[in-house]
Structures are given as C-alpha cells and as structure tokens.
Amino acid sequence: MNIFRLFGDLSHLASILILIHKIQTSRSCRGISFKTQALYVAVFVTRYLDLLYAEHVSIYNTFMKLFFIGSSCYILYLMKVRFRPTQDPSIDTFRLEYLLGPSVVLALIFNYTFSFTEVLWAFSIYLEALAILPQLFMLQRTGEAEAITTHYLAALGAYRALYIPNWLYRYFSEGTVDPIAVVAGIVQTGLYVDFFYIYFTKVLRGQKFELPA
C-alpha cells in the first residue's frame, strides 16, 4: 500500500458517500445516470466475488470490497425504489450494448489466463473504464449539473487519477506492471479530462457547472 492508492481508495469511498448524501438530502436522484450506477454494480460484483474463492488479502481489502458491493446496490435501491419518481429514464439514453459488448470482447481477447474467473476480472476492468460514459453523456445532454453532482464526479475521477502514480510507484519499488489495469485505467482517467477542465475553471471558483453552448 502506498499513499497514492490509499488516497485513491479513500477518494472512491468519499465519492460514494457524496452521492448517497446528495440523493438523501435532496430526496432526489436528478442528474444521476441510473445506467452508470447499474454498471458499477456489475463491475463490483464481477470483480469482488473473488472474496468467495480467492485467498484472503487483508481486512482492508475485504472491507472495501464489501463496501463497494453493498453501497452500489444501495444506490440502485435509492434510485429505483425509494426515490423512483425523481429518476428520469428519458434523458439517460446511452446504449448499454455499446459498453457491454466491447467489454466482453476485450475480456475474451485480452486476459491473463483464459479461465472463467480471469475473463470475469478482465471484463470488470474494461467495463469500469467505460461505465462513466452514460453519466457524462447525460451531463452533456442537460448541459449543467448541481454542484454536489460535480463533487461526486470529481472524487470519482480523482480516484482514477491517483491510481496512475500508484502504478508508477509500484513499477519503481516492486518492478511490477499490470498492463490490463494500467491501459484501462489510463483510458478511464482520460474520459474525465473535459469534466475536470470545467470543474477546475468553473465549479471550484464558485460558478455553476455549465457546458459551453
């Protein structure tokens, strides 16, 4: 464990708490893509079911995995049951096939071992890289976002960005590289570049998050 990974994970944890806080205090999931949230459940379940068969890593690792599975399912419950009327599928129109299809194909081609569990792991890595797209697409369609929604996205993007110095650190300190995670992680972080530009130049200066017309 190094500080980049620790702060990355904490940022991920914070992003989920911010999202739950936003939904509960505003009693609304306006502006949040249900598709992106559903994809995260798929990501966490396919990656962290290794809790059932892989050898124990650490209490930290187990706790985080359980938290990510549990909290992502809870968010789906909030969106589909508790605050269902505030969720508007008509603007959440990104096609899931465009993300699921390529993730399955990539996982079948690029994996470390052609076994069920390793293909599943690779699938979860590729799907995570793409899962934010319905949310970003929705943001683009509406052209604006509540400040708290942008804080959620910023924390989520920071988590991805922090994993990059983590890999550099591990490369120099342990001599290890995980090409699948690194390539997918760099792509995933790249998807946030436009968002971060507006977040830093507008939201952090107290202005509203608005996309240029």
Binding site: S58, F68, Y112, T113, Y163, R170, E174, T176, A181
Partner: peptide, 10 residues
C-alpha cells in the same frame, strides 16, 4: 501469467 500483485488492488 497472472501478475500476483494484482489481486490486492481494488
């Protein structure tokens, strides 16, 4: 081969 360090990342 599976990099053995990968399983500890989240």
């Amino acid at each position: 081969p599976v990099p053995d360090h990968k399983k500890d990342e989240l």
